[in-house]
């Protein structure tokens, strides 16, 4: 059986992502920069960009790995500029497509071709299962949001992220159908938004400065299927200009299994 993914009400639609798969080695995707994906500095948030990057990477890696399927192993994002309006474009290309691993590099640019972020992702190649989506027929322009789909509240709020203890960087998020990936687990790119919320809360408290998350090194260890997912954060360094934290994400509904570990960097706004 092949499952239709994403379902009608889903973050991929509401973020209004559009895709064009150029060939088996390159893809492009676009995301409108709306207030709902921007932070309090008015610029697109790293956690929204990780979602864009993860989705375009997943699609391209899945093509590169055909007929097998893939699971995201890690994702890194480094922001180098800001985008406050218009659209951002992610351009992904395959660096390596091997028997066990696919590695991609992704540039994110704004409408003036200025680099907003650089990202990398790698994927473990897995044997295809019946539940994996069939992507063989997806072509350029075939993945575009339906009319009316849009975020109406900030992305973090729509995900359901709740800050339980800002100083300790403890946040919680449910696993809902809106945020599940094609494997039924919390979407890997949206994990970036959760890690960002946890690290930013802890680093702003530690630094007493309005730091903005600019870098994420995310390592995926297992799926977060049950939820709620909860973070544990350790501040490694913090001053008025920058901060570094490690964040672990646990599935509280699955015996506190660690699903993700990350190192997060925050700096003064890129303004």
């Amino acid at each position: 059986m092949t499952t239709a993914y994403p379902p009608p009400h889903h973050l991929l639609w509401d973020l209004r992502l559009r895709f064009a798969h150029d060939d088996d080695n390159a893809s492009r995707a676009w995301m409108p920069v709306t207030p709902e994906v921007c932070g309090d500095d008015g610029s697109v948030r790293a956690g929204a960009l990780t979602t864009l990057v993860d989705v375009i990477s997943g699609g391209l890696a899945a093509r590169a790995a055909q007929p097998n399927w893939i699971a995201t192993a890690d994702l890194t994002l480094h922001m180098t500029g800001r985008a406050a309006n218009g659209e951002v474009e992610a351009r992904a290309r395959v660096l390596r497509a091997g028997r066990t691993t696919v590695v991609l590099e992704i540039d994110v640019v704004d409408e003036r071709e200025r680099t907003v972020a650089v990202a990398t992702s790698s994927f473990a190649v897995l044997p295809r299962r019946d539940i994996n989506p069939d992507i063989s027929e997806r072509t350029a322009g075939s993945f575009a949001p339906p009319d009316g789909a849009a975020l109406r509240v900030p992305y973090a709020d729509q995900l359901g992220i709740r800050v339980l203890d800002a100083a300790a960087g403890v946040v919680e998020v449910p696993v809902t159908d809106w945020s599940r990936n094609s494997m039924g687990a919390f979407q890997g790119g949206a994990v970036g938004a959760v890690l960002e919320a946890a690290a930013e809360a802890a680093l702003r408290t530690a630094s007493n400065s309005p730091l903005v998350v600019t870098d994420l090194h995310v390592t995926y260890l297992s799926f977060g299927r049950v939820g709620p997912l909860q973070t544990r954060t350790e501040v490694l360094a913090a001053d008025a200009d920058r901060g570094v934290a490690t964040v672990a994400l646990f599935d509280t509904g699955a015996e506190m299994r660690t699903t993700t570990t990350a190192r997060v960097v925050a700096t003064r706004s890129l303004l």
Binding site: H78, V118, L270
Partner: peptide, 9 residues
């Protein structure tokens, strides 16, 4: 790739 307050990427 870019300049930031914490260095060059």
């Amino acid at each position: 790739v870019g300049e930031r307050s914490d260095g060059t990427v």
